[in-house]
């Protein structure tokens, strides 16, 4: 049987084998319609209700942020706040941009996040391939170490890391920050990508080799396209980790012109938890937009990629 042929003899559609098809299967012509029994109906209703509740739980902070960003100060001090601002205003956005260099900070965050995500992918992809394809004691130990490295909390590494970067004159340097972001996201990226590589059937590569393709050709033309959803999902993970990261940026960057968005957002906070709530909400809303947009644009690919990494071929 050809490696790309299914067990039932049918041929795959254009969905790559690495990406699971999450669409609901179409009902075949002529097959009997499945009637829902009352019990199944109740179960399904309960499932949807639970899903709705979970979605509301997830969406609440974002919707509240959206609402707060457009509220004037008097509505922020109301004991009975409304979801929809009674007198919506853009003053919070104007004030936020007037007070702090949000655009420059967003540029810094974008640079750090994009470069670190790119580097993490460039490093993690070949490493993941080797870890997935080469099964020996060393690869098992390396995989174990990758998993263990996730257990170290940030506070444990920050001081040694700071001293190392200080010795390399990389404190207050964008390069230093990006190096940290790459190192910080690399283990998880590696772990994710290893799963994706394992999901690509080895038989495909063997078939390519039998057709005369060299190692590099096989990797580039066969394996890489199938890994694309996984690479996109991993890159997105690395990007968002760096985009949202606060503590490293706070500790490592000193010059105001290099500060990233999460650090600049704290400038709307005063002592003892007092906050300039309107401009803070407006800025925070703007800070969440890139993540939201990225997810919206490539959500389908991510879903496929995540599922691909989750199941065995």
């Amino acid at each position: 049987m050809n490696a790309t042929e299914r067990a039932d003899g049918s041929h795959p559609r254009s969905v790559p084998p690495g990406a699971a098809d999450v669409r609901t299967p179409r009902r075949r012509k002529g097959s009997p319609r499945r009637h829902l029994t009352p019990r199944r109906t109740a179960t399904r209703t309960g499932q949807y209700a639970a899903l709705l509740g979970y979605l509301a739980f997830l969406a609440f902070p974002l919707l509240w942020l959206l609402s707060t960003a457009f509220k004037p100060p008097r509505e922020l001090g109301s004991l009975h706040p409304t979801w929809i601002p009674e007198a919506p205003t853009l003053d919070n956005f104007r004030q936020a941009f007037a007070q702090q260099p949000l655009a420059a900070a967003a540029g810094n965050s974008l640079l750090a996040a994009a470069v670190s995500a790119l580097l993490a992918i460039l490093l993690a992809t070949p490493m993941a391939y080797v870890l997935a394809r080469v099964r020996n004691r060393l690869s098992r130990a390396a995989t174990g170490w990758v998993v263990i490295s996730q257990a170290f909390p940030l506070v444990l590494v920050i001081i040694p890391l700071f001293l190392i970067l200080k010795g390399l004159h990389l404190v207050d340097s964008r390069i230093g920050l990006i190096m940290v972001y790459v190192v910080w996201s690399l283990p998880f990226a590696l772990w994710m990508l290893t799963g994706y590589v394992r999901a690509v059937p080895r038989e495909l590569e063997e078939a390519a080799a039998m057709d005369g393709a060299g190692r590099l050709r096989t990797l580039v033309s066969v394996t890489a396209p199938l890994l694309a959803p996984g690479i996109v999902a991993t890159a997105l993970f690395a990007f968002i980790t760096a985009w949202n990261e606060f503590f490293f940026a706070l500790v490592l960057l000193k010059s105001p012109e290099k500060q990233t968005l999460p650090v600049v957002l704290t400038h709307f906070l005063g002592a003892e938890g007092v906050a300039d709530l309107g401009p803070l909400a407006a800025s925070a809303l703007l800070a969440t937009l890139p993540s939201l947009l990225l997810f919206a644009v490539i959500q389908r690919r991510i879903t496929g990629g995540m599922l691909a990494g989750a199941v065995k071929s």
Partner: peptide, 24 residues
């Protein structure tokens, strides 16, 4: 040169700035 700091993070930020020889 005006440098913007923040109340919630000033202690940690100063601590590492002094260590790194990068204090304002």
């Amino acid at each position: 040169q005006y440098v913007q700091g923040a109340w919630p993070t000033v202690h940690d930020q100063l601590l590492t700035s002094f260590e790194g020889g990068e204090a304002p």
